[in-house]
Design a protein around this nucleic acid. Structure first.
Lengths: 107, 107
DNA sequence: ATTTTATATAGCTGTGTGGTTATGCATAAT
DNA sequence: ATTATGCATAACCACACAGCTATATAAAAT
């Protein structure tokens, strides 16, 4: 039983954390302030969530002066893909979607 | 924000539930008893976990006499695939693995 | 009919966790 | 130098939740 999927599933099980991660994935690097204003919860709550996401490897923070800029690390999702691929009869249904995705990426 | 990923991530965030699901995926239909003996936790705990997995659509139970046979529904993972595919630069790394999987499935 | 077996549910408990406010510690800004 | 800002941590609270034992219900078995 690998530890990686556990931390990832737990980190992504919270909707607030998923929102943060999705936001960082879509819109790139953000400071804690920026994330806080876009959210309904307090700044310390955001910081705590970022800490958990960071432990799971899903985000990265770089200090710049007095602010910390966080960015998403979507490659950290790879262990989840690996885990799911073990239970994989459903892959066929998603093949076409994947192919179009790859085509888009190859452009 | 879809509800499906939330229930799925939450259901899979628990290691005991993942073990049950993995077990059902690998070894097919099982009764509650069979799952209980293979686990370290009590029968009621197993039943509760199965209830949560069922709510998430990850397992299915069919009554047969006094026992209930549970089986995995791996297609229920599809919304997770969809969710992840939005954050998808990492797909390239997994392409070869996926191709071999598809080849195996086409045999 | 009685007893055993299979499962689910009820009720309890301890722990984990997401939220809050308060505060500390840097780094700008004035 | 002083004040303001950005972030993290501490301390606390409410609630969710995974585990347990006890029990109810239904189906087999005797």
């Amino acid at each position: 039983m690998q530890a990686a999927p556990d931390a990832l599933f737990k980190a992504l099980a919270d909707p607030t954390r998923r929102l943060i991660f999705e936001h960082l994935c879509r819109d790139g690097e953000h400071t804690v302030q920026m994330l806080t204003t876009r959210s309904t919860v307090s700044q310390p709550a955001i910081s705590k969530h970022l800490g958990i996401l960071k432990l799971a490897g899903l985000v990265r923070g770089r200090h710049q002066g007095r602010e910390t800029r966080y960015s998403a690390q979507p490659q950290a999702l790879a262990p989840l893909i690996d885990w799911m691929s073990h239970y994989g009869a459903f892959w066929h249904d998603r093949l076409d979607r994947l192919e179009s995705l790859l085509n888009r990426m190859d452009q």
